[in-house]
């Protein structure tokens, strides 16, 4: 006999976040790196940023940490976010581990 059961996952949240457009609007812009303090995150992300800059006619600008006392699991210092917003148009970062 057939049996019908509920899915255990439920729905995703209603809020839909649209991704910003990138390459077409980005040519000639500056790229920054926000590294999260994990070992080699700065090296990996900077290499990616440099490579990306070369491919989309952009300029690699800056690598920064999240701010004093911040770490991979905590929020970025608002001053750092503000500095990046003023300095660059694209930020590469890593989440948690």
């Amino acid at each position: 006999m057939n049996m019908k059961i509920h899915s255990p996952e439920g729905d995703l949240m209603d809020e839909v976040v649209e991704l910003s457009s990138t390459t077409p609007l980005f040519s000639g812009g500056k790229i920054g790196v926000l590294e999260n303090g994990k070992p080699n995150a700065d090296l990996l992300l900077t290499k990616i940023a440099e490579g990306l800059a070369g491919r989309i006619d952009a300029k690699f600008s800056i690598t920064t940490g999240k701010g004093e006392r911040a770490n991979a699991a905590t929020a970025c210092n608002p001053q750092v976010v503000g500095m990046l917003a003023e300095e660059v148009q694209l930020v590469l970062t890593g989440s948690a581990d």
């Binding site: 057939n2 019908k4 509920h6 899915s7």
Partner: peptide, 19 residues
């Protein structure tokens, strides 16, 4: 308002396999 799955039978192994 809920998503359902149809199982072929009520054998405990069936839900195990589906999951």
């Amino acid at each position: 308002q809920s998503q359902f799955l149809e199982l072929s039978d009520e054998d405990p192994d069936t839900i195990y396999e589906v999951f």
